[in-house]
Amino acid sequence: MHGEAGAGKTLLMAMAGLALRPGAGKIQLFGLDPWGASGQGRARLRRRLGLVFQDLSLIDNLTVAENAALPMRIAGVRPEVLRRDVGELLTWMGLAGKAAARPGDLNHDERQRLAVARAVAGRPEILLADEPVGWMGPEAAARVLRLLLQLNRQGMTLVMASRNPDLAPAPQKLELVRGRPRSEARP
């Protein structure tokens, strides 16, 4: 999904990720109506998603490792599996040396990598990533994109929003213009 700033990419991603409730219209996720479900039902649907928010939404009083492990902890993964997987993930993201640091101690590039690590940690069925490499240097961005595409090849649906239409190869592209797909946008 691409478009100019203010086109509505972040809004659409937030609604698709059940972080915002639409005022009108309908959202279906995995064939279900999330806003017609109970809070518990919505929570179950959210656990099947991975989200990279533009504001990153890292928890300041948790360490880097604890932040990355959060979706697994919520999903009830066993502690030994959780430690091993988070260790591997942080190594892949180049954050292994900062596992005990707090998000406030990281630079923005590292914080963004941590947000991506947390989003993929729970092995989601769909990953919604809003500008996932926007603040990263070219090397880190290439590394993170490689990971995301690899997960996509393994079966995870990947939805990325960016101002750059050529960020990654995609079988489907949607361009937003003032909140609508280009094909529906009024000139």
């Binding site: 972080a19 809070g39 179950r44 939404s57």
Partner: peptide, 16 residues
């Protein structure tokens, strides 16, 4: 608040 909002967004149940 910030931590709870994030945990809810990541799928923690309201009961938890």
């Amino acid at each position: 608040q910030q931590a709870l909002r994030t945990r809810l967004r990541l799928g923690e149940s309201p009961g938890d």
